[in-house]
Design a protein around this nucleic acid. Sequence first.
DNA 1: GTCTATATCTCGATAGAC
DNA 2: GTCTATCGAGATATAGAC
Lengths: 214, 214
Amino acid sequence: MPDTAAYSETEEKIFLAALEEFSRNGRQGARLQDIADRAGINKALIHYYFRSKDRLYNDVFTFVIRRYFLQMGETIRPGDSFETTLRDFVDRYIDLLDENPALPFFILRDIAEGAPMMSEKVGEVLLPHAGNIPHRFTESCERAARDGEIRPIDSVQTLITVMGACIYFFAGYPVLSAAIPRLKRQRRRFLRERKQHIVDIVYYGLKPRPEESE
Amino acid sequence: MPDTAAYSETEEKIFLAALEEFSRNGRQGARLQDIADRAGINKALIHYYFRSKDRLYNDVFTFVIRRYFLQMGETIRPGDSFETTLRDFVDRYIDLLDENPALPFFILRDIAEGAPMMSEKVGEVLLPHAGNIPHRFTESCERAARDGEIRPIDSVQTLITVMGACIYFFAGYPVLSAAIPRLKRQRRRFLRERKQHIVDIVYYGLKPRPEESE
DNA sequence: GTCTATATCTCGATAGAC
DNA sequence: GTCTATCGAGATATAGAC
């Protein structure tokens, strides 16, 4: 749940309703009347508190993205082996997406529009506050390659592969779960296995292992 | 480029402009005036040819998805080793996304809205015409595990990992390329390497290999 | 701060001239 | 087939009472 402590009770009701409606229907598709109904307040109050639909969207987006970047920034600790870094990153990223089902759609929708909000926030929040997560991930990857822990594989490619493997379950869920019923029936179990699978396949690959020593 | 041979010249101009605008701004966000401007024709002509905005969207979506499913259906040949299956699948999938930059956003946007169109088309096009690609991929994966070519890893997890690894480059491009300049500067080269990387990392993993025999 | 009523505007859709 | 002009629905935004 968002920490909206700085808001009054009414403001918070509007904020949470807006978050829900914007995620479902997008910036244009969302209706102020629906937001007001969901919040259980009058439509005019939205303008009283947030001035306009655009400002409301801006506030909601900024809040969600800031929290997203900050939480992801906590996943990478400089001293760890790359296996640990990878495991923590995947674990935290999937939990984050699972706890915020609206998040992938929120971001992807913005990206589809040319990422006006994201590009703004990348410079404003990601780089200064979250310590540039991509850069820290690739650094950890490259150090591990120098130490001989892993093969010298392009670290940016690896990052994109790992992030894609994590996010696609959530982004593709409505279609995937229609074709594969157990995603819905055993979602928790499948997600637990998903974390293990990604680390396992990225780290060890599909090939049979010569000997097991783990 | 879509094969819109059945359309007149004006229809085709509208169709292509609509494809572009719907991808960028979504079903709701797209404006008929913008579509008309992009096509270089009058707004009323859209209604003359396509009756309504909803029908236009429906036509565009159906066309794009049908072609997408059909092209993906060609990638998996039953007799191949899983390494070949994987390589062909990744190669074709990335080419397809590269040739149709609007495609990921088109699909993801529909999914964000609860996938009303996709769920319809999955039943109508994917299953009967494209021979159920996910099923064929997982079958190939499971047979390879029985034959000892690969480890007995959950084939559905593998499919989701591979698709996510392919699509995320395109879906995340506007943000990724802002943080990593070479994605834009050397796009063609990076994409070529991306195909190799995905097959390599999924099949062999990050761990150093005991001996090279390829 | 919260509500009702209404003004303003945007956009899809149609009518009708050519 | 293509254009101009306009209608009408529906949404955002504001005015003003309480």
